[in-house]
Design a protein around this nucleic acid. Structure first.
Lengths: 127, 127
DNA sequence: TTGACGTTTAGATAATCAACTAAATATAAC
DNA sequence: GTTATATTTAGTTGATTATCTAAACGTCAA
């Protein structure tokens, strides 16, 4: 719990807060689900996940090709900060609206999601 | 308490955390004391103070030429976040060492401090 | 009222950062 | 083994930001 500025900086980005908010609702999400929901490239999503992991907010579990992320529940300092975030994002109407759409990527397995993503991509490519 | 990313971003800077840490120890500090202690230009200090005030962390009181800053105790969300910061900076050894030197700018009035600052400045100019 | 001084604002610059594409890595499927 | 695929890393670019100096603003004192 040393570098507080690093920890706070990790929270100082809208997309990273969205990741944390999504992990409050879904215990575990794979990289491709987060990439899909954020609406950024896979590389960008991976970068954000790396920053959050580095600050101690999330941890990852590798399962074959897939990497699943969840909130890190070990550090008490991080834990209490996450509690603060959870309490205070409830007033963020914009974020709550976005969270409604989270279901679209959690109502199916990562495998099905990726198939859908590839379909979408080919659709935009041929038009 | 809407823009959480803005609030966290305000904490995501070492100098701004130092300002907050100093205001935990000294109930009130004037801009010139903070400028002196941070070791940055007055303009830079003023900018950081503006960001912290804009995020809701501090408030200011004008007293003639002098502007005094203190922690803002009105917003409950900000209040609990400040509590978290206070608790967790205790482990930051580097910051604690710096805070020891805070006395050098609080053991005299802003007026005396400014006289000292001008002396220091002229000393470096003529050598 | 003029000059000095504390603070803020404006403008410039270098560093940092979020985003992308492309390449690299690692794993699964054929 | 080769190919497809999920993720990360490298490299690039545009935007943001922390810092500075100079100028502007507001207040006090002579």
């Amino acid at each position: 719990m040393k570098h507080i500025d690093k920890i706070c900086k990790a929270l100082g980005d809208r997309n990273r807060l969205r990741i944390i908010a999504s992990l409050f609702l879904s215990k575990e999400l794979c990289a491709c689900q987060i990439h899909e929901w954020l609406g950024v490239s896979g590389a960008t999503a991976s970068n954000h996940l790396g920053i959050l992991a580095n600050a101690g907010f999330i941890s990852s579990r590798k399962d074959g090709k897939w990497v699943h992320y969840r909130l890190n529940r070990t550090d008490p300092g991080i834990q209490s900060l996450l509690k603060w975030v959870k309490k205070n994002i409830s007033n963020d109407t914009e974020l709550n609206l976005e969270l409604d759409k989270l279901k679209l990527v959690t109502d199916c397995s990562p495998i099905e999601l990726r198939i859908r993503q590839r379909k979408e991509k080919s659709k935009t490519l041929c038009c």
